[in-house]
Each structure stands twice: as C-alpha cells, then as structure tokens.
Design a binder for these strands. Structure first.
Lengths: 338, 338
DNA sequence: CCTGGCACTCTTCATATACGAGTGCCAGCG
DNA sequence: CGCTGGCACTCGTATATGAAGAGTGCCAGG
C-alpha cells in the first residue's frame, strides 16, 4: 500500500503533467507543490511509484509521466468531480433552453459539451427500448407502400418504409392504426412485441400478410444495433492531442466514424453513475491512447441514453467529469419538460 | 501565351508532385517523362512558368511545386476526367444498390466516395425546394400539439412539431390533411407557398389560428438554410494531408463541422457540371489549402443536390473527378428507381 | 532556340560537443 | 527508520561544423 505522501506525489504529477504536457521532475514538483519534503525524498517516492507501475519515464533521465494505471488511481482515489461554477451552469442552461426538438437538443448538447471540455463530444439519442411509445402512425404513400412512424415520449421520431405484399385498403389501414395505438400507446417499447403479436388475427386473410409485414418492420426498428443513434462533434479538438499526433489521431477519427464502435463502447460503460475508461481499458484498439468519460442521462431517475467525451488520456479528469455530469443533468431536465 | 512544351512541363510537374509529394526538379522531370529536351531547357521553361505564377519553389534550390494557379490550368486545360474502370463501376453499383431508404443511400454514398477518393466526402440531401411533394401528413400527438411530416419524391422525410394556439378537433384535422394533400401532392415545393396561402379561409374562425400555424411551420421548413442537410465522412483521410498538417487540419475539421459553411460552399459551385475549387478559390479561409470537387446529382436531368470531396490541393484531380462524377451518376439512378 | 557546362545556393544529414535536467545511490543526521 | 544533501552518471536537446547532393541561373556555343 502506498503511503499518503506518495499518493500526493502521484496527484501532483498528474496535475502538473496535465497542465504542462511535459514530463515532470522531482525538483519542479517540490517547487510547485509544498509537499514539505526535499526533491531527494520525492525521488524515492517516484521510484516506488514507478515500481508499482503508476508512472513511467519516457526516456532515462527525463521526468515521469503517469501511466494508465496512474490515471486510474488518480480518478478513483485522488480527485473528485469538479463542480461547475454558477455562471457555467447558467450558460449551459441558456444554451440548451432554446432547443426546439430532439435533434436540436442533441445537436446543441454535442456543441456544448465539445466547447466546455475542449474535447470530442459524443451524445447518444434516447434509446427506443428504454422509452415509451407516444404514438405510432401509418401513412399510405402508394397502394402497396406504407410509411411507419414511431414517436417516443422523449421526442424521438423514427420512420421506416414498408413494402406491402398486397394492396391495403384505407379502412384496413385506419383499423390497424387504431388497434396498434390502443395497444401500445404509453407502453414501454420493450413490451411492444408481446402486445402486438396476435394483431394479425383480427384482420381478414387478405390483409394479414401486410399487417405482419408492418409488425415485423416495427419490431426490426426496436432491435438493438439498429435503433441506437448518436451524434458527435468537436473533432477539431483532436488537434490538441500532442505533437506526435498524426499516428494517434487517425484511428481515433476512424473510430468516431464507426458509430457501431462508439455505441458498443458506451454500452459497456456502467449503466448508472459516471464511467471513465482510461487508455488501454478501452476495448477498441484505436482508442488505446484516449480516455472516454461517459454518463447516462434521462428524464426521470432512469437513464435513457448516454453521453460523454473522448480525449487524450492526459486530460483534466475532474473538470471533464464535472462538465459531463452537469450537461447530462440539464439534458435530462430538458427532456422531462418536453 | 505558354508554348505547348511548357504546358507539358507543367502537366509533368503536377503529376509528379501529386505522386511523390516532393518538389520536382528539372533533372527528375526529363528522366521520368520523355519530353525530348534537356534539363537545361526544362529549367528555362520552369523559370518562365514561375514568372507566370504557375509554380513556385518552397526554398531556393529545391524543386518546384504547382501553385493554385498552376493546378487551375492543369484542371482546365491539361487533364481530363479519368473514367472509372468497369470493375470499379460495378463495385459502385453493388455498394449502392443495397440501400433501403434515403438515409441509407446518403450514408452509403458518403462511405463509398470517401473510400474511392481517399478523401473527405460530402453529400447533400436532396433539396426540398427542388423536389416535389409526395405526401404531407399531420398527426395529433396531444390536444394542442401536432406533428407535421413532409415526404418528397426523392424519399426525404422531414418532421416538425407544431404547437397549436387552440385545440384542434379530429374532424378539422382530417379536413386540413385532405385539403393540404389535394393541393400540394405532386407539386413542386417552390409552388407550395402560393398553393396554400388561402387555406385558412376554408376553416371556421376557431381553427384558423391553428391552420395558419401549421402552414407557417410548413413554409419555415422550406426556407433555405433550414432545409438543406448534409452528411460527411472519411475525415480520417485528413491524416494523409502532409507532414505539416496539425496547422492545416484543424480549420478543415472546424469547417466540416460547420455544415452551414459547407452548404454555402456547395451552393456557390456551378449548378450544372463539375466544379473544382482550388485552394484560395474557396471563399472560406479554413479551406484555403484544400480543393473541393463537387457536382450536382439528381434523378432526372435536373440536379436535386450536390455531392463532392474535400482534399489537399495536391490531389489526383482526374481520378477524383472521375470518381465524383461516377458516384453522382449512380446515386441519381438509385433515386430515380425508388 | 536548344544544349552542355559551371559556379553558386541552400537544404539535409551526420558528427561532435557542450549543456542541463533529472536520476539513483549513499552516507549522515534527527 | 525516514529524510536530506551531495555527487557522479545518463541521456536527450541544442548548437556548431562540415560534407554531400540536389537544384538553380546564367552563359557561351551550336
């Protein structure tokens, strides 16, 4: 177990390195933080910390930098979440309050988060499977072509084309629409499959094919992988990565375009509370030199989706976590209001 | 006026520089291209080309690289559009044919274009104002809350929430829906404002407020700036920019996130045929070291939107133009089929 | 108008050297 | 036993120097 002072030394190393981007030496440490001990003592502590794998030196005779394990300890034990100041909170609220619909909320959230943290922001749309149905609509576009529109209580709207096996009359359409809504409105999406499974039985033989097609399209939209969407922003902040960045930045950009990868990443994060994945803790290789800070947000007590940021492992964790948490809170409020 | 040989020298410089990314000297030129003259002669030609501003040398006693003006001449006079090979064309078609809806078409197009050109791809959604109305739908979500859904012949779907000044009955809703569709279905979106302006008159006084609100929401969605959307992809290709790229790449990433900037850029491009904007020809400063190749696409003879790529000025123009043109053609076909 | 020759310019690369930051270790002190 | 100052050592960075090479501009001659 590490002594109290050694933990403080680690904390000081992380803070200085995050600030300066340069390996930090024993002398500089004692000057900038009053640890009450001499550089020689700090050197001993550093040697111990290095033995334990919390810090490393890029080259012999350079200062130390934290390892992923060092950041992990820092986040878990040595640092809290830095709360937003009152003016910052007001700014967040003002920025989000103008949103007119869900797309706008998500877009604004991405911008805001990117700006606050100066990192890449990732915001997931509210998951269908965690929302309730507000309305299901069926439009007839052509004799054998329908459009299915799903609307959730979180304001999300999904539409899908349905090619019917046979023409479908106006009367049957109205019937299906009414029955569908009476069964699923205000119900959770996860219950929908069970609630509609016997619907075709209520229709004439000629129409059952179409009804089944509509229902299977409906169920398809609820399948995970299909239903999750997200928006990213602030990629320009990747340029703040470091000097060596050409090699780092490319896989990160690639990962950011692979929404599936990001969704998986967010999915792996804990369901409640804030999750920080540091460097190699991220399963996806391209993100091995980044950290991902994410948290769920939702209108009530329950999270309907996640949001977060992706940045260099050398990031200001307390500040980033504070911003992410605050934004998630306000987004939740906005969703609850609408 | 430049002599024929000097133009060939310029062409050779552009080709070599694009290939090697290194300034090209007189000796290397005569070795790789059989111009039939000696390096000394080429040097004289180069001096002349430099006087005219077509090429420049990064440092004294280094080879020459083309200027924006040089690329311009190359594109206008010295190079054609390189057609896609038959297998490439088949691959394009296969890749696009699986698309299930417009979002999917656009997403696939972006991926395809980014992959073919190894540059950043930009694809605009079909413009509303250049499409015709397939269907307008009104859904009642709450007593005083409607949802307006617009569907175009190109498969684009836009939805907007409408907060009504007063509750709106089911009968009035059905009436409005029917009247609206009978007036605007199959008409061009640009005609819509004229076609609906007297609609409120047909309703009872109590409902006129709501009808007007619906109509003004409808008209709002048609305003340029609001109605245009686009998707980008392949940003990871920005890492292929050059060695100096941290300073170049940041403003480019910023521009790519500002869809308004990109839309303006595409808007300025010629309405028919392919447009190439080279370096400083781009009005937006952040894109001064990039070139933008864009072209309109559409189901019929008329373009409904544009697509293109953004890359370094040092790009393979003939190949890029060929890919952009081919993709635009196939996308047009796909849209016409659906 | 083209060509070969030639002197000149500059960048790049390798080598050598000095400098300094930072370390590890040790003996001594409280 | 832990902290401290001292000291020798390592090694990366910065600077200077020189050689090599690529490329140029210019000129005289064909």
């Amino acid at each position: 177990m590490l002594s109290e002072r050694r933990l403080q030394v680690l904390r000081a190393i992380v803070q200085d390195y995050v600030g300066t981007e340069e390996p930090v030496g024993s002398k500089a440490l004692t000057e900038r933080h009053n640890l009450g001990v001499s550089p020689a003592t700090v050197r001993n502590d550093m040697a111990a910390l290095e033995d334990e794998g919390y810090i490393a030196q890029p080259h012999t005779s350079a200062g130390r930098i934290p390892t992923d394990k060092g950041y992990r300890l820092f986040v878990d034990k040595l640092a809290g979440v830095k709360p937003m100041t009152a003016p910052e909170r007001r700014a967040i609220q003002n920025f989000l309050d103008g949103a007119v619909d869900l797309d706008d909320v998500v877009a604004r959230t991405v911008r805001l988060l990117a700006q606050l943290t100066r990192q890449v922001a990732v915001v997931q749309y509210p998951s269908l499977t965690r929302s309730t149905v507000r309305h299901v609509e069926l439009l007839s576009l052509a004799p054998a072509r329908l459009m299915l529109v799903l609307i959730t209580d979180t304001g999300r709207v999904e539409q899908r084309m349905v090619d019917c096996p046979a023409p479908f009359g106006e009367a049957a359409l109205a019937d299906l629409r009414a029955r569908l809504n009476s069964r699923v409105a205000s119900r959770r999406f996860t219950d929908v499959p069970r609630l509609v499974e016997d619907l075709p039985d209520a229709f004439e033989a000629d129409d059952r094919g179409t009804v089944s097609t509509v229902l299977s399209t409906l169920l398809e939209t609820l399948v995970e992988e299909n239903e999750e969407r997200l928006m990213i922003g602030g990629t320009a902040n990747l340029t703040r990565f470091g000097h060596d960045f050409p090699l780092i930045i490319r896989p990160v950009l690639e990962a950011l375009e692979e929404h599936v990868v990001l969704l998986k990443l967010l999915g792996e994060a804990g369901d409640s509370g804030m999750t920080v994945r540091i460097g190699h803790e991220n399963a996806y290789e391209g993100l091995n030199s980044t950290s991902v800070v994410s948290v769920g947000y939702g209108s009530g007590g329950e999270a309907v989706a996640k949001l977060g940021v992706v940045g260099p492992t050398r990031m200001d964790y307390p500040g980033t976590m504070g911003a992410v948490r605050a934004v998630a809170r306000y987004v939740g409020q906005i969703l609850a209001e609408s």
